[in-house]
Design a protein around this nucleic acid. Structure first.
Lengths: 339, 339
DNA sequence: CAGGGGGTTGGAAGCGCTTACATTGCACGA
DNA sequence: TCGTGCAATGTAAGCGCTTCCAACCCCCTG
């Protein structure tokens, strides 16, 4: 079943069938209809490989992420794929983990597959520990096809690259949240984070901004890095607690860590939010699991993902797009805060 | 940069280069080395489209699921993709939602893309409400390429189909868990579930088995179906509670629902596990979020996913495989049960 | 030394599509 | 009536690979 069968059935040449297939205008309405009905009748679909050979596009984009089972990334992937399919693109998923080598080989795999574009989902790709040439593989790839960073950003002069970012205003969101805590009288606020990714450090900056604006000192003991799980977060707070440093609020870079904070408080009979206010990040399902439920900053994963895809589609269509698109976050108030 | 460049560099014909590329044995060791070094030197990778045209394979498999942001499915996808890539296959993700039409069109999209096989992840594809011809699109597709159902199963005579199932012994797991509750003296056990998927009903059967084995009646009021979220689960229990039907244990078909049960208990000052024992399912991250932490049945998502991929790879390699592969679940005891 | 056979290699025909270029046919104005 | 021009269509040359088949070389046997 190929284009020749269709051309025979419709009584035209394969060139005409191809024109109809590709929406070429130089086909009379009568012929177009004849071809279309032949296609329908034969239930014909063009061979992607042959088509790819000619057009050098497979109508697929790669989605790279560190770990698709992470709640935030799983959501991002869902929205990315949904939006891509709306535009008739398929999503090829690659989970790289945190290994730099794996990232490069995943990227190469996608390039070899001749995907039309690549979306790097999650800020983990842009990370303080990346090293001098840690992003070369991204830059390099961006010379060949458009790349969109979701919640990540690469600065500097990138001539000849098609490199775009769609991200959430994490810094401003954390600054605003911290400011509200300060205004409510909290003075010993802990910032709890798990990685050195772009957004994690960005949030840290936002926290610092708020403290500076209020004229409060940023004490390093209150900037607590831990492993990205409940136990890690809890353990970090336990350590702080044992050292008798008083704290009356926690801002976490992820709901998962905030859950750890709630558990810490529960274990010590610390009342939340009266004695300890807690703010999570991502506004994920975890925020509804704890008692009391988490106040959390919503980083608009659906909106960001959707915009990322739209931007990519626009670029793939030959259009231009702004290299940077920033979406505002939103504080969702629940019961771990009093304001 | 194509096969001609390589052949020129290596001083051989393109046929020989192709033989080396495809591991054909009829190449002398010396020639093979010369070609391989030319390939390395030129950093050549074959064009997937041209290759696909010839071989009719793209080294990619489709993963269909209803919703990749679901915690269980997100995990399954992670493990599936990881294992696929180990075998040099890419994963093309398609989230269909619960719409039957979308499922069919997703399936068609994957077939059109000429994927080598398809994995249907999650039991939602096999569902009581599917209707008479609800699975025809699966059967049909399985005539063209191998399909593996993860946690789903299609019975009946399927000549000419390559249709396989890898699943978890959900029924036995729930039966065993319920039996333990009964043995511990619980008599009014609620089974809380959210859908009519294959595994959900399977679990329900397991619950019934346990009650029957113990000679206890299965009262329909205690089989509670709700929406797949915390509020739905909680609401369902609230309704039961208001109707003054006593219950002293809850088995949920998903941790999410179990969280709702914990919240219900908290709201009414019911002590968990003393007055109410709760068992979740999937042993997801949610099990660690509540206070007390959830006892949960682990359905071995990593093992099941890995086996599903191995099975598919085996079939794709021309081998045969058992149509059904069942993995035992494991009860993970935490603090919402006393035994 | 001729003939045969097996291990290597090259030539060339596809695979199914796109598209530049050639061709056709028709309407229109001169 | 005959160009002229444009819209519609066909022809054929790729795209980069796989693979059948033929050709070759070398060594062994008779």
């Amino acid at each position: 079943m190929n284009i020749y069968d269709v051309s025979k059935k419709a009584g035209v040449s394969i060139a005409t069938v191809s024109r109809v297939l590709n929406g070429n205008a130089n086909v009379s309405e009568k012929t177009r209809e004849r071809v279309l009905s032949a296609i329908k009748e034969l239930d014909y679909t063009p061979n992607v490989f042959a088509r790819g050979l000619g057009l050098n596009t497979m109508k697929a984009v790669g989605i790279m992420c560190t770990d698709s089972s992470d709640i935030y990334l799983a959501n991002a992937i869902y929205y990315l794929e949904r939006e891509l399919r709306r535009f008739n693109y398929n999503a090829i998923l690659c989970c790289t983990g945190n290994d730099a080598g794996a990232r490069k080989s995943c990227m190469q795999l996608l390039l070899d597959k001749r995907v039309d574009g690549i979306i790097l989902a999650g800020s983990q790709f842009i990370c303080r520990d990346a090293g001098v040439d840690g992003y070369d593989y991204i830059i390099e790839a961006a010379r060949e096809l458009p790349i969109v960073l979701v919640n990540g950003r690469l600065d500097g002069n990138r001539d000849g690259c098609r490199l775009y970012s769609v991200l959430c205003a994490d810094r401003e969101a954390v600054c605003s949240a911290a400011s509200q805590l300060i205004e409510a009288g909290r003075r010993n606020i802990v910032y709890l984070y798990s990685g050195t990714s772009y957004s994690s450090l960005n949030k840290l900056d936002g926290f610092t901004d708020a403290m500076n604006q209020a004229g409060l000192p940023v004490r390093p003991e209150y900037l607590r890095q831990c492993t990205r799980d409940i136990a890690g977060a809890r353990g970090s707070l336990e350590a702080l607690y044992s050292s008798r440093m008083p704290f009356d609020a926690v801002i976490a870079s992820d709901d998962m860590l905030a859950v750890g904070a709630v558990k810490f408080a529960f274990a010590h009979g610390i009342r939340v939010p009266d004695d300890l206010e807690i703010i999570g990040y991502n506004n994920s399902v975890l925020a509804n699991c704890t008692e009391p439920e988490l106040t959390s900053i919503d980083n608009r994963v659906e909106l960001v993902s959707t915009r990322a895809v739209r931007l990519l589609i626009q670029v793939l269509g030959g259009g231009s797009a702004p290299p940077l698109d920033i979406v505002a976050a939103e504080l969702i108030k629940r019961n771990t805060t009093k304001f």
